[in-house]
Simulated scan of single mutants.
Amino acid sequence: MNRRTLLAMGTALGLTLGLAGGALAQDKLKIGFIYVGPIGDGGWTYQHDQGRLAVEEHFGDRVETIYQESVPEGADSERAMTQMVLQGAKLIFTTSFGFMDPTVNVAAKFPDVKFEHATGYKQAPNLATYDARFYEGRAVMGTIAGRMTKSNKIGYIGSYPIPEVIQGINSSYIHAKKVNPDVEMSVVWAYTWFDPAKEADAAKALIEQGVDVILQHTDSTAPLAEAAKTPGVIGFGQASDMAEYKPSPRVSSIIDNWAPYYIKRVQAALDGTWESTHTWGGIGEGEVQIGEITDAVPAEVKAEAEALAAKIASGEYHPFTGPLKKQDGSDWLAEGETPEDSVLTGMDFYVEGIKGEIPKSN
């Protein structure tokens, strides 16, 4: 056998091994995550990243995950998504409402890549959406808030005036009002998802107005840190447990549990059964969890809150059950009536009793 023959055999063998290696590499699904905040925010992004880590633990060497944190909503997010595709990602989760249109744009350019957008409503054959019924958890927090306030003044820090946030404000107020007819709610808009300084300033402004219970739909622990400076002021963990502030001012929390959803969707991508869907889970599905209600809350209030959570989880009770009116006094829901999901996902009004106007969304 001459040297030329040996070289040819070696080349063929190398090509075969290279093709096999390529097949093995293709078997490993590369998954990307685009985050609006830092993974150490202690709230929203932290919980999504916990879901990513759960995917790695569950699937082992069948997957590879990559992520980019603190991605601004807008053109920067399109570049980040595109870069992930060029790095070989075949499934990409974009985890903030403001990523919606950028995700639509990038998904259209790469029809062979699967995309999933959190809290949005625009879909395509390769673009699914997923959300959580945060308003269910807000009903439980609102009940505790209404019972615990001594000033009858509750504050709410909103991020942006989008339906998801407005749902939470309304649900919190409705349930605080049910247990305490004298309660009032003040809303401060921070116009950020994650900015500890702005969030702390918003909490301080509310406390200066006499608020002694603060709810938030922003991502950092700054409002709880501000509440801790004033005796008698309480708050709630948002998206994550924020357990470092137990037993007070953090007296309970809404926890976003994304891990089961991420594992399910990655499995579908691996199986070849992935389809574009819209998923909206709540307490019953385990996607929204109620964190430990601490001993700072009276036992009877804790029992009342837990009973409400159980009724919501079982489907026995819907947080938006009539009779309910809109802020302008017009009828919204009749006695016993509940809204269609399509109404909730487009919610752009306050319920009766909340003061102030909803600013125009940017």
Results as ranks from 00 to 15, higher is better:
I283M: 05
W280R: 12
L91N: 02
P102M: 11
A12P: 02
S342K: 15
P163W: 13
G155H: 10
R3V: 13
E287N: 14
K311E: 13
G210F: 07
K198F: 06
R265G: 01
T279I: 14
A54W: 05
E357W: 01
M100R: 05
A20K: 12
E335Q: 14
G353D: 09
D112Y: 01
D219M: 12
H217P: 04
E73G: 02
E164T: 15
A269P: 11
F349T: 13
K90V: 05
A124S: 15
G322V: 05
A12F: 10
I92L: 01
G315M: 00
Q289S: 06
M347P: 01
W193A: 10
S151P: 03
L224P: 07
I66G: 06
E64Q: 15
A139M: 04
I144Y: 07
M84C: 15
Y317W: 11
P163M: 14
G37V: 14
W280C: 07
D348K: 09
G356A: 02
T119F: 04
N362P: 14
S186I: 05
T338E: 11
I31H: 03
A228F: 00
N152V: 09
D331Q: 15
T11P: 07
E304G: 07
N105F: 02
S342T: 15
A75Q: 03
D219R: 09
I254K: 05
T221A: 13
P323F: 13
G286Q: 13
A139S: 10
I174F: 12
A305E: 08
P196W: 06
Y35N: 14
V187Q: 04
W193V: 09
L13R: 09
G346N: 13
M9V: 15
G88H: 09
P260G: 03
D348A: 15
S151E: 00
T338M: 09
T5K: 08
W193P: 02
G14M: 14
T65D: 06
K198Q: 11
D27I: 10
I234K: 06
H278S: 14
N170M: 04
D271T: 04
A12S: 08
Y121Q: 14
S253R: 01
T95S: 10
H175M: 03
V63T: 03
D241Y: 05
G120S: 08
K30I: 13
G51W: 03
V343A: 14
V343M: 12
S248L: 02
D341M: 10
V85W: 05
F134Y: 14
E78Q: 14
Q327H: 00
I154A: 08
V213C: 11
Y130W: 11
I263C: 02
H117Y: 02
W332M: 09
P196L: 00
S220T: 15
Q327T: 05
M185R: 04
A80H: 03
D27Y: 07
S330A: 09
S252N: 10
I166S: 00
K153A: 06
E64K: 13
G155W: 12
M1S: 15
N170P: 08
A225N: 06
T119M: 10
V104W: 04
G272E: 04
K229C: 01
Y262H: 03
E292C: 11
R62F: 09
F97S: 06
P196T: 02
M1R: 13
E357K: 05
A269G: 11
G353A: 01
A228K: 14
E64W: 08
D219G: 10
T65R: 06
